[in-house]
Design a protein around this nucleic acid. Structure first.
Lengths: 206, 206
DNA sequence: TGGTTCAACTAACGGTGTTAAGTTAGCATG
DNA sequence: CATGCTAACTTAACACCGTTAGTTGAACCA
């Protein structure tokens, strides 16, 4: 069945289906064969539209990062930073399974760089020295990526009783599992505000 | 050649060789066959000592986390937190290639939990409400894991000129690549201090 | 109309983690 | 001391992976 009258595949369609599988089955749950099957096509057909799986994932990741809002630096660095960080985290939290890939390597993801530029520019325009602007950008990214990993609250397995017995100081943390998402969200917000407070004190003390 | 007179393999030896390969060839560079070859043995022999690759990696990760210092909470929460965060980051920076695995899933890594317990206990003992102690622990971990990913400075590929042309505001960031490690280390220290300053202000303001 | 290009196909390669079955050294027991 | 069980390895093989090669026939342009 060669060259169908109307194309069966498109880059956008492939990306959408790939993201769907990642969301449902995890990053390791995505294989080219499974993806092809979901699109009603054989695996090598995908390689006509994407040269490699890596490239496809790069594009999917790009699509997600595109939604991050870096526009609020016009309302001051504090507002800009908070808006950026929150929308960044929200974007990742919507597709947590792709975060390990995101974090692995930068690849060819243009969107990240365009945003890094906007952020750095916004901070410098607000009076931060370039070197500190760089560090603030990096720091915020650390927070977002770290939080997106959810490594803390997800560090508790389902069978909680075991840990309660062994680690008494964890105390009220025994309900961490059931409130995992809320804890992650609150902790991120907490960390972000502490960090920005620290920044404000530093900038104000000059 | 069955059952050699003296065992060729041990869990510790397997872990050591695995970590060596990971450090040298990256996380994806570790395969059971390559690991077996490095140990002068056939691949299935490993499965006598480790039920699965995942379990092996869990153990390797555990070994690394074991080195994290959580003892300094006896000198106050500030000192305890700083020491923990710095030694945590140092431990990960020593084996950056395993960080993506670390972040992927918590697995059965006992060491993480024993440390979470110590940290939570130390913070509460120093006067932090349990709920905030949980968030402080989580936040610090976000910073460490995020920084270990080095996702910011490594987000710039080798060919820098391309980005200079396209993203003018990046300005002095054009030397990011060559100073990548230094930038990461400084940014982490910066973020940590800003965060702890924010914390101190919050605790002091009560 | 003819030739080229496109978008799919099947077959296959080398790699992966892992399981099954075979072989024999070491150890415990009668 | 012989017997049997377990331990620690072997080779062969399974199902899957990302990817490449070679084929087919519809669509498009001259």
């Amino acid at each position: 069945m060669p060259r169908p009258t109307t194309p069966l595949l498109s880059q956008a369609g492939i990306r959408a289906s790939a993201l769907e599988i990642i969301d449902r089955d995890g990053l390791d749950g995505l294989s080219m064969r499974k993806l092809a099957a979901a699109l009603g096509v054989s695996a090598p057909a995908l390689y006509f539209h994407y040269p490699t799986k890596e490239q496809l994932l790069d594009d999917v990741a790009n699509e997600i990062i595109e939604k991050v809002d870096v526009s609020a630096f016009t309302h001051g660095w504090r507002e800009g930073l908070l808006t950026w960080a929150r929308s960044y985290r929200a974007a990742l939290a919507e597709h947590p399974n792709i975060v390990p890939f995101l974090a692995r390597g930068p690849g060819q993801r243009d969107a990240s760089l365009r945003r890094a530029d906007a952020i750095h520019g916004g901070l410098v325009a607000a009076g931060w020295p370039p070197r500190e602007a760089t560090m603030i950008g990096a720091s915020t990214k650390y927070l977002v990526v770290g939080a997106a990993m959810g490594s803390f609250s997800r560090g508790f397995v389902d069978d909680v009783q075991v840990y309660l017995d062994r680690y008494p100081s964890l105390g009220d943390a025994h309900r961490l599992r059931e409130h995992a998402d809320a804890v992650d969200r609150d902790s991120f917000e907490f960390a972000l505000l502490m960090f920005v407070d620290g920044l404000a004190a530093r900038l104000g003390g000059r």
